Amino acid sequence: MNKDDTGENIRLTNEAENSLPLHQSRNTLIYCLHTLLDQFELHLDGIIKKYKIMTITLLLATVAAIGYSFSVELKALQINKLLLSSLICFFGIIGITSIWYVDINVYHKFWGAFFIESVKMEKKFHFLIDIGDVSESLDSVRARIYGNGNFYIFLNIILLVTLGIVLSFFSELNLFKVVIFIILGILCVVTIVVMRRFCKKILNQLDELRG
């Protein structure tokens, strides 16, 4: 081995020794970032659960308010009880729809984005725990968003049916009742289609993150 080769080997050894701590630091930063993504997922998951509890509470409060509007305590109140109950149902539907929009459009979108990015990091850096393929992870996100979307759809349908029942008492005419329930059926179908299409829109945005 000549002098030039020896000098080259020493130079390469020094570069390797200098780059090793940097490599370890890089792995540490990647690991910390991955841990941070997992923590964000858990945080958002907790918020999503609270939103579902809040939605159920709103539904129960709406039903209780409708029942209370026909109670003895409000008998002396000079107001149409059917109209009051209809307004309560209407605002209950608006409330649940608003919670659904914020939950799916904000928290579920961020949760899905963090989840997919976490899986992408696990596929790219083998020292992280690998939990599955990105496409499989997107399937998990899709199932969850559609599942929670159906949850909000179900609660809205309950209030729509309640609203239809209340409105049907405004008149004794059978034709009026038939028209009310036809409109109710149309509203239920529109609600299902619109809310599921919105969930699909969110999933299409998340699908772009797969790269």
Rank of each mutant, 00 (worst) to 15 (best):
E122V: 04
D103T: 06
I183C: 12
N80K: 06
I131V: 08
Q24M: 15
E41D: 11
D139P: 01
L83E: 13
C32A: 14
I94K: 12
I180P: 02
L160T: 13
Y107G: 00
F125K: 01
F198E: 13
S85N: 02
D45G: 14
V178A: 11
Y51A: 02
G149A: 03
H126R: 05
C188N: 10
Y51P: 00
L37S: 11
G112R: 00
V194W: 04
T55R: 05
I202T: 15
A65I: 01
A76K: 10
T62K: 00
L184F: 10
I192C: 03
H34T: 05
M54W: 11
I145C: 03
K3D: 15
I131R: 11
V106W: 07
V166F: 01
H43D: 12
L128D: 06
L83M: 08
N2V: 07
V63G: 01
K52S: 07
Y152T: 02
K123C: 15
F181S: 02
V134N: 05
C32D: 12
T55M: 01
K49C: 00
N150L: 06
F151Y: 14
L82A: 08
G7R: 12
D207L: 10
L22A: 15
T191L: 12
F176Q: 03
K50C: 09
W111E: 09
K3W: 15
S71W: 05
T6G: 06
T35G: 13
W100D: 02
K52Q: 15
I53L: 12
F115M: 02
L155D: 01
L184S: 10
V119F: 00
F169E: 05
S71C: 07
A143Y: 13
H34R: 07
L12F: 15
I88A: 08
G92P: 03
L58W: 05
G164M: 04
I79W: 04
F90R: 09
S140H: 13
I30G: 01
S98E: 12
M195T: 14
A16E: 11
A65N: 08
R197E: 05
T57Y: 09
S118F: 03
E122D: 05
E136K: 14
L187K: 12
K124R: 14
S71I: 02
I93D: 06
V178S: 08
V134W: 03
F125N: 07
L173I: 11
L12D: 14
R26Q: 10
S19H: 11
E136D: 15
V193R: 03
L84E: 14
D4N: 08
D45L: 03
I158Y: 04
S140T: 09
Y146A: 00
L173Y: 14
K81M: 03
V179N: 08
N80E: 07
I47S: 00
N9I: 15
K75Y: 09
I202R: 09
L184M: 09
N80A: 03
S135D: 12
G7C: 07
K50T: 11
K201P: 01
D139V: 05
K49M: 02
A113G: 00
Y101Q: 06
